[in-house]
């Protein structure tokens, strides 16, 4: 015993030394910055513990930013999820030629990564005041898009833009789940007398809902954290959380660093909750894949 004890210790030391670089990296550049901000949200400028910063989040301008952010994220996530699901169902179950399936999947891989500043440019060129669609509607159909109240730098415009990466992301995540539906299930259901609708209601939807709902939350978090597209599209004219935070980091527009931390904390809470539910639902969905 006495002889094995130090040996065991030495092995444990090498074990821990082996992951030390990763541990140091993740503490320094991931965990510490996050913890610093989160703890900063709970103190006042003099270092006293307080909940005032969190309460201050509910002042009208910041609350409005959260609300519009949540609205845009939710709308683009729901829209992206519905259209993305329809598209995934079409290529997975619709009996379309296989070249089309791989073409759609490859394009989705591209489009889901085509976010940020270039995406904003593309939509300005499409639906901006001088965008192609705006001009075509005006010159060919005599319809004044902006006269009708549309504005790209608004809730609707931002939602429409975000859906450009939300739909492909949904397709990429949900297609494997749809492919996991075995043909025998639908055949078994139909010989047992079920109509296609009964099969969807009693088998497909219960199997898929954790994946679909989970992905919806992932899309929500994805849109909520998107900064570049919003900044490039709207400058600072639209009051959404990432833009408020961006401006705060640039120049303390809130005149209270700790309130800035609270804004960041709020973002982490919202994206964190949606991601954790996503991961939990995903594990639930995988239970059936065995």
């Amino acid at each position: 015993m006495a002889a094995t004890q130090p040996l065991l210790n030495r092995r444990m030391i090498t074990d821990w030394l082996g992951i030390a670089p990763f541990a140091i990296f993740s503490v320094m550049f991931l965990i510490a910055p996050t913890v610093y901000l989160i703890s900063g949200a709970f103190v006042d400028p003099n270092g006293n513990l307080t909940l005032k910063n969190l309460v201050d989040l509910f002042q009208p301008s910041i609350l409005a930013a959260y609300i519009i952010s949540i609205k845009v994220s939710a709308a683009s996530a729901i829209g992206g999820a519905i259209i993305g699901f329809a598209l995934a169902a079409a290529i997975s179950l619709g009996g379309l030629p296989s070249w089309l399936r791989s073409a759609v999947l490859t394009f989705c891989g591209v489009a889901s990564n085509f976010a940020g500043v270039p995406l904003a440019f593309a939509f300005l060129a499409t639906l901006g005041r001088l965008g192609l669609v705006t001009i075509l509607l005006r010159d060919v159909f005599g319809f004044n898009l902006y006269g009708a109240g549309f504005n790209l730098l608004s809730f609707l415009g931002l939602t429409l833009t975000y859906m450009y990466f939300q739909i492909p992301l949904m397709v990429l995540i949900i297609t494997p789940a749809l492919d996991g539906l075995k043909r025998e299930w639908s055949e078994a259901a139909s010989v047992l007398g079920a109509t296609p609708w009964q099969y969807w209601r009693m088998v497909v939807i219960p199997i898929l809902w954790p994946s679909v709902f989970g992905t919806l939350l992932l899309l929500f978090a994805n849109a909520f954290g998107a900064v570049a597209t919003a900044v490039a599209l709207t400058g600072s004219s639209l009051n959404i959380v990432p833009i408020v935070l961006f401006a705060q980091i640039r120049g303390d527009v809130l005149h209270n660093p700790n309130l800035g931390y609270a804004v960041a904390f709020g973002m982490v809470v919202i994206t964190g909750i949606s991601n954790f539910i996503y991961i939990w639902l995903r594990m639930r969905a995988e239970r059936w894949q065995k």
């Binding site: 910055p33 996050t34 610093y36 901000l37 990432p242 973002m267 982490v268 991601n275």
Partner: peptide
Amino acid sequence: FVTLLPLVVPAIVIVFGYLRL
């Protein structure tokens, strides 16, 4: 869990932390 954290903490929050730390 640690490797999934960057999906939870938006980049803007991480860089905010860097600027303070």
